[in-house]
Lab assay of single mutants.
Amino acid sequence: KKTCTFCKKEIWNTKDSVVAQTGSGGSFHEFCTSVCLSLYEAQQQ
């Protein structure tokens, strides 16, 4: 099972999830929504 990098909820429907390359290492992270992605990126600043 996949979990959201930001909120840690399980991702049930992968077509609704967002995968983004974030951080200095350029690793890929999966998020349940684009909202979680935005919040995660804001936290990394």
Rank of each mutant, 00 (worst) to 15 (best):
T22E: 13
L37R: 12
G26L: 06
N13A: 15
F31H: 03
Q21R: 10
F6H: 04
F28T: 15
Y40R: 07
V18T: 15
K1M: 10
E41G: 08
C36E: 05
T3E: 07
V19K: 15
E41S: 05
V35S: 12
F28E: 15
G26K: 10
A42S: 12
C32A: 01
S34Y: 05
G23F: 05
G26S: 12
G25A: 11
T22S: 08
E41Q: 10
G23K: 10
F31E: 01
E30S: 08
V18Y: 03
C4E: 01
Q43M: 05
S24H: 14
S27C: 12
L37T: 06
T33S: 14
Y40D: 07
A20T: 12
E10Q: 04
C32L: 00
F28C: 06
G23P: 07
C4H: 00
S24C: 06
C36P: 02
F31K: 02
T14V: 06
F6D: 02
A42Q: 14
C36R: 01
N13I: 00
T33V: 01
W12S: 03
C32D: 05
V18M: 11
W12T: 12
A42K: 14
T22I: 03
E41R: 10
F28D: 15
G25M: 09
S34V: 07
Q44Y: 04
Q21C: 03
C4S: 00
C7V: 00
S24R: 10
K9H: 02
E10D: 15
D16C: 01
F6M: 14
G26D: 12
Q45P: 11
N13H: 08
H29W: 08
F6A: 13
V19H: 04
K8W: 05
V19N: 08
A20E: 14
S38M: 05
N13D: 11
S38Y: 02
V19G: 14
K2S: 03
W12R: 14
C4L: 00
Q43D: 11
C7D: 02
G23W: 04
T33P: 05
H29A: 13
C32I: 00
Q21P: 12
H29E: 10
L37V: 08
V35Q: 12
L37Q: 13
C32M: 00
L39G: 15
K1W: 02
A42E: 13
L37K: 10
Q43S: 09
I11R: 04
G25E: 13
C32K: 01
S38D: 14
K1Y: 02
G25Y: 02
Q43E: 13
Q43T: 08
I11M: 11
F31Y: 07
E30W: 05
G26V: 07
G26M: 07
S24A: 15
T3K: 04
S24D: 11
Y40Q: 10
A42I: 03
K2C: 03
V35T: 10
V35R: 11
L37Y: 08
T14Q: 13
K8R: 09
S17Y: 01
L39E: 15
Q44V: 11
H29Q: 14
T5M: 10
V19Y: 11
T3C: 03
K9P: 01
K2L: 10
L39N: 14
I11Y: 09
V35E: 14
V18K: 14
Q45E: 15
S27I: 09
T14D: 15
Q45S: 11
C4Q: 00
L37S: 09
K15L: 01
G26F: 02
G25I: 06
K9R: 04
Q45L: 09
N13L: 05
T3Q: 04
C7T: 00
V19Q: 15
S27N: 06
E30V: 05
V19C: 13
D16A: 04
K1G: 07
L39I: 06
Q21H: 08
K8S: 11
E41I: 01
Y40P: 03
Q44D: 14
G23H: 09
F28R: 15
H29S: 12
T3M: 07
F6S: 09
I11P: 04
V35D: 11
K8T: 08
E30P: 11
Q44E: 13
S38I: 02
A20W: 08
T14A: 10
E10R: 04
A20I: 03
V35M: 08
T22D: 15
G25Q: 11
E10M: 09
Q44I: 07
S38T: 08
F6Y: 02
F6I: 12
E10V: 09
A42R: 08
I11G: 09
C7H: 02
N13P: 03
S38F: 01
K9L: 06
A42N: 10
Q44S: 10
E41L: 01
L39Y: 06
E41C: 02
V19F: 07
S27Y: 04
C36Y: 00
E10C: 02
G25H: 06
Q43F: 01
C36W: 00
W12L: 01
H29D: 15
K8P: 03
F6L: 09
A42Y: 03
T22A: 12
T3S: 07
T5W: 04
K15P: 12
G25L: 04
L39R: 13
G25K: 13
Q21W: 02
L39M: 07
I11S: 06
Q45D: 15
F28L: 13
V19L: 06
V19M: 11
L37M: 13
A42W: 03
V18S: 13
L39K: 12
G23L: 05
Q21A: 14
Q21Y: 04
K15W: 04
Q43W: 03
C7Q: 00
Q45T: 13
T33H: 06
S24L: 04
K1T: 09
S34R: 12
K8Q: 13
C4G: 00
E30T: 11
F31L: 04
C7L: 00
V18Q: 11
S24Q: 13
S38V: 03
V19P: 14
S34E: 10
T22N: 08
S38K: 12
K2P: 02
C36K: 01
T3Y: 14
Q43C: 05
F31R: 02
A20G: 12
G25W: 01
Y40N: 11
